[in-house]
Structure formats: structure tokens, C-alpha cells
Write a protein that binds this DNA or RNA. Structure first.
Lengths: 229, 229
DNA sequence: CCATACCACCTTCCATACCAGTATCCCCAG
DNA sequence: CTGGGGATACTGGTATGGAAGGTGGTATGG
């Protein structure tokens, strides 16, 4: 089945008007609820119920559910409802492998160019992580860590890569939120971030990639061991 | 805005039933039409018109359009229609960087494990590429090349990575289809594939990653130079 | 003849209605 | 009491109509 070329009207590129849509609101609300753990894994609920809570109809909720399904956060089961996917260790392993690939590439790209602003942001985030750790504020630590990685992928000059990495990070964040209490203090992250920064400053792409990969691989192993019990 | 935990009903994991939906058909039809060039870049058309051609309503077409938009093939412009995105060289560069990262990681993973079936498939594909090239059959060559890369990412043991790589490959395929006529004979690919296979057989992850990255980087540079004129 | 303002059409987005399918529960038979 | 069969009700997938909004065309005034 093919779509035949309709009456042509070639246009130049145009900036997206970006009106806020209800579907976007539903997406954000659902995602936030899942990431915060308000909707624990395994929960099943009907689209209609979600629509009622959000004060909209099923249509935008359905669209949001499909998007989240695409990202692997939930599953829409016909005649069953939408189900928040449990954190499958195997799934998480795959996600971390993707994340290692993407962030490693981002680090290599960033090392190959001068980008003082990104490096500064990453240094600031690392410093804040140290402060938060000293203060025992795990939430602040996680936020600063998130800023570090976000600055890394957003500074590499590849928005597509950054977007994919952000999606994978969202998944990993879920796992970190659920295992935070059972993991030891994240004292290693700061020095690993330091190693990444050093490689970036030196402009050594391979070292930057390797340091980033090591950092994520260690975190992955740690979380997986906790998750697997 | 948050979704409060509704009446819980925790269930065990279940395999997806995977009924075929009209939305999937619309997605496939649209994507094929774009990849084949039937819907050239820049074209604007209404969702209604597509729905009419496919003999369905606007709802599944809209869903398909959103999916394609997510993949970067088109753009849904409110009150304008869906627009097939032009092949922006900058965009393609980003896509290839993602592809290099993902396929490089896949090669490294594959090298670290024994997977004779995948290697055999890749060797077969490479041989078929040689035959197609000798016969002057560009289409068969492209198909065999596609099989090579598909076997690589699907053999690495990470379906998530494979899916992302497949999406990126689709984008690259569009560019290859549009520039095929203006590019030289792809004689280098076969030996580059050979280098990748050698590294995989040797179990050398780093060499496999490097060889894969080099292969894609060369193709990327070639296509981009043609595309930029 | 050109510029401007108004109007009408066409678009997506959302709400609502319909449909088909299946899981569940109840009832009856053994 | 237990097992099976069927009716029922609830679900998501799809269709459709209405509303909001923007664009292009046209008409009018300078």
C-alpha cells in the first residue's frame, strides 16, 4: 500500500509554532507520575480513569500512552488497560548499554571540540554533587548528577544524540530512584566525573569515551546487583 | 499535575498480543512512501487526504504521523498538514553520528561474545554484496548491505540498541536512495566489512568498534559531500 | 495600481460515539 | 462442591463531528 504523491506544495523550513497541546500535558503528567513512583510498576489502569483525573478526554491520554509505550515505560494492553512496566533487570541492562554508547560518543565528540561553556557547567555540577553529598542531600546530589550528564550530551553538538540519551536517562532514573535507598553512598561518582573532565580538557576523545563508559558501567553494575537482589 | 495512584491491580509480566492495527498499516505505508521517494521532501499534505487514500479514518493516520515525526521523517504542522522533512545535511550528520555510536557499540558487544550465526549471516551478506556489485545490481547490493548491518545490531544481544539503530538506519537509507545515482561504485564497503568481520572473529572489541565506526564515517562523509553539492 | 482589511475555507486537535473482543463472573449441571 | 459454558460488562481501537485557529484570497479604499 502506497501513498501517491498528492498535489505538491513545496515549502521552506518553518519553525514549529509549538502550541501547547493537551496530549503534551498528559504525557508530562504520566511520565512524572511514573518517574516519581506514584504509579508503581505493575499497576494497571484504564485510559478513561487517567483522562478523568486529568480532566480531559481519552484521545490525548491515548496519544500520551502510546508515546510512553514507545519509550518503554508502560504498555497498553487492549482490553486490559495501560500497565506500568516493571523494572526488568535485563531491560535495564540494555538501556545502560545504549546509554554507554551514546554518552561515550558524546564525550568523544565534546573532547574533539572546544566548548568552555559545557565544561564549566559540568564542573559546576560536579562541585555541587560534592556539596550535596557532604550535606547528605541525596535528592540534590541526583539533580546535580543529572545536570552533569545533561550538559555532557547537550554540549556535544548533536541534538539528536542528546534526545536519545535523555530518553535512556529517564529510564535509568527510574531505576535509580527505586534503588537509591539500598545503594551505598555514591562517593565514586565525583572522581569519575573528574576523570571525564580531565580527558575532555585534554581533548583526548578516546580517553573521554572510555572514562564515560567506565563511569556508566560501574553505576549500571551497582544498580543491577541491587535490583537482582 | 500528577496522576494519583488508582485502584491497584498488580499483575505479572505478559507477552504482548501484537494484534495488527490500522495505525501500524498507516505507519508502514507512509514510511515506505517516504523512503521510496514517492513523497518527496518538502511536500505538504493533509492527514485527511492520506486517510482517504488508505481507506481509513484520520485517527490512525494521525498516530502514524506522530510516530514518523518522532523519528524525524516528517513534521506535523498545526493547521498546515504533515510536511515531509527535507534531507538536511546537518540532520544527516547527526544521524550518522548516532549510528556510528550505536553500531560501534554493537560491534564491540558482538566481539565480546561468541555468536557464529550472526557472523555467518554477515559473511553471507558481504559475499552477496560482491556478487551484486559484479552484476551491476545496485538494488541487490543495497539490500545485502542492509542485511549486513541488520545482522550486526541484531546479533549483539541488545534489542533496544538494535531498534534505535534500525531507526537511524532508516533515515540514512533515505539519503542513500536520493544520492545513489551521484555516488561512485561502493567498492570499498566489501573490504571494510571484511575488516569488521576479522575483528569480530578475533574477539577484539575495540578493533571491531573502530572498524565499524570507520566504515560508517566514510559512508557518511561520502554522502554528505554529495548532498552538500 | 497598490495596500490593507475582512471573510471564508481548510487544517489540526479534542470530545464523543461506536464497535469488536475478551476477561470475568454467575449460574447451572454433574 | 466443582467445573464448564455463556452472558455481561468493560476495555482499547476507530470513526466522526465540532471548535479553535491560521492562511490565502478577495474586495475595497486611497
Amino acid at each position: 500500500m502506497e501513498v501517491k504523491p498528492p498535489p505538491l506544495r513545496v515549502t521552506a523550513a518553518a519553525p514549529p509554532p509549538a502550541r501547547e497541546k493537551l496530549a503534551d500535558a498528559a504525557y508530562a503528567a504520566l511520565k512524572a507520575s511514573i518517574l516519581e513512583g506514584l504509579l508503581p510498576p505493575g499497576v494497571e489502569t484504564a485510559e478513561q480513569a487517567i483522562a478523568d483525573q486529568l480532566g480531559m478526554s481519552r484521545t490525548p491520554v491515548h496519544e500520551a500512552a502510546l508515546r510512553l509505550q514507545h519509550e518503554g515505560m508502560l504498555q497498553v494492553l487492549p482490553r486490559k488497560g495501560v500497565r506500568v512496566l516493571p523494572l526488568d533487570p535485563e531491560d535495564l541492562r540494555q538501556t545502560y548499554e545504549v546509554l554507554i554508547a551514546l554518552e561515550g560518543a558524546a564525550a568523544a565528540l565534546l573532547a574533539a571540540q572546544a566548548h568552555p561553556a559545557a565544561l564549566a557547567a559540568m564542573e559546576r555540577a560536579t562541585a555541587e554533587m560534592g556539596q550535596a553529598l557532604a550535606a547528605g542531600d541525596r535528592a540534590a546530589w541526583a539533580a546535580a548528577d543529572d545536570r552533569f550528564h545533561r550538559a555532557l550530551v547537550e554540549g556535544c553538538g548533536n541534538p539528536k544524540l542528546a534526545r536519545l540519551a535523555a530518553t535512556a536517562t529517564d529510564q535509568a532514573q527510574r531505576a535509580r530512584a527505586l534503588t537509591a535507598a539500598r545503594r551505598p553512598e555514591p562517593v565514586l561518582s565525583a572522581e569519575e566525573h573528574g576523570a571525564i573532565l580531565a580527558a575532555l580538557r585534554a581533548g583526548d576523545s578516546e580517553a573521554a569515551r572510555a572514562a564515560t563508559a567506565r563511569h556508566r558501567a560501574r553505576a549500571s553494575a551497582e544498580i543491577l546487583s541491587v535490583l537482582r537482589g
